[in-house]
Computed example of a mutant assay.
Amino acid sequence: MRTRVFTMIAASLLLLLTAGCGPFPSALAADGAVSEARMQQDIVNALKERKSSLQLKFTGKASTLKQTVKDTLEKAIRTDDYLHYVVKTYGYKATLKGDTATIAFSFTYWETLAQSAEVKRQVARALKRILTPSMNDHEKEKAIHDWIVTNLSYDTQLISHSAYDGLMNGKTVCQGYALLTYEMMKQAGIPVKIVEGTSRGRAHTWNLVQIAGQWYHLDTTWDDPVPDMAGKAYYNYYNLTDAQLRKDHHWKASASYPAATADYGQALKALGAKPSSKAEFYRKLYGTLGFSFLEDAYTVTSVSDLTDRIRRAADSRENELVVRYTRGGTVKSDLKKALNAQTGVAGMSYTMEDYTRTTINDKLLRIKLQY
């Protein structure tokens, strides 16, 4: 009987650098051949226990056996988002005799079993401090977002990749942010998923959260200033739709990623208009997330309009003007023209950032005036 050997080695999406991990025990399945469902469950169990290896036999059609093993391994890895992204590398080597394969799986991890357990404990303690029984999911999400962004900083050296690193050392990359967001939302009872794709030219992960029956994109990584600013949180990537996020995030469509189509600003505006004990929270959050800049009073659409807005601010001796400018592609030259048209203004400085609440190239301008 002919014997064939086939091998598959894969790396989790965000495997950038090797992190030092201690040795893990191996696992050996029963000697008899297992079914496809049993093979998947055995793999899941090995991952949950952070085993470094798993050996088993599987019988199937020789023509499709290699693909079956590969597909089953992928399904097992993706049964749980936290488990998926805590796996660092995975693969297998199989020896095939007829319709039976003897398979040796291998795994490495970003977190040990003990470290993942510590993440759960630390998250439970943090949630006990920042959440109250009276909070609804809108309030819980805001509290969790702010806690993560103000307690973690982005690891610019790209060494730390886990939620454990973020909690214990205060630094991690996007994978760690997404994992911690996932665990905190999950323990708080908020449906959550991890999304993988690219952003700003790099491999990237973020989250989808379900609030009041609607899914939204939440990127705690890009809401954290770099370099880190103590106590500072941004909200540019807080509860965006698919269309809004696609301005600078890219991902492959998947049945695992529910559609995010509801406008969160409209939801907050409606909630804030209803008499309730939470109305003031909704109105304040509406402003914090920058939805006010969609209103005409804060929107500028042309050079002449920008010139006029600056002139009116100068006439009133205002020190700062904040507006959404819809001509993002020409903002620098337009600002120069608007300043040159002013009288009575000694100088002007500005900061500019992408405005993520629309699907066009809008910029949020903060203009400081000197007299």
Rank of each mutant, 00 (worst) to 15 (best):
F24P: 00
L73K: 05
T79F: 04
S106D: 13
S26R: 06
W110Q: 10
T108Q: 02
A101K: 02
E49K: 14
R78F: 12
Y109E: 04
V86L: 08
K57M: 03
F58N: 02
L73C: 13
I144Y: 08
D155V: 05
D155T: 10
D155L: 07
K70P: 02
V44N: 01
V34G: 05
D137M: 09
R121G: 12
K57T: 08
Y92T: 09
A101Y: 02
T59D: 06
Y92D: 07
A143Y: 06
D71L: 01
L47M: 15
K140Y: 10
A37P: 02
P23I: 04
Q67V: 08
S35D: 06
K88R: 15
S134M: 11
N45Y: 04
T150Q: 14
Q41R: 08
D137V: 13
D31Q: 14
C21K: 11
A19V: 11
A126I: 11
Q41E: 10
K88H: 15
K70Q: 09
F107H: 02
H84K: 13
D81S: 07
A19E: 14
R121D: 13
T72K: 03
S52R: 10
D146R: 09
D80E: 14
S26I: 00
V149I: 15
Y92F: 15
K88F: 12
Y154I: 02
A33M: 01
Q55T: 12
T64S: 11
I144C: 11
A143S: 05
S35V: 00
R50L: 04
I103E: 05
V44P: 00
Q115I: 00
I130W: 03
L65M: 08
C21Q: 11
R50A: 09
A104W: 07
S53F: 02
T112E: 05
T68W: 00
E74D: 14
T95M: 09
A76D: 07
V149Y: 02
A27T: 07
T64I: 03
M39A: 14
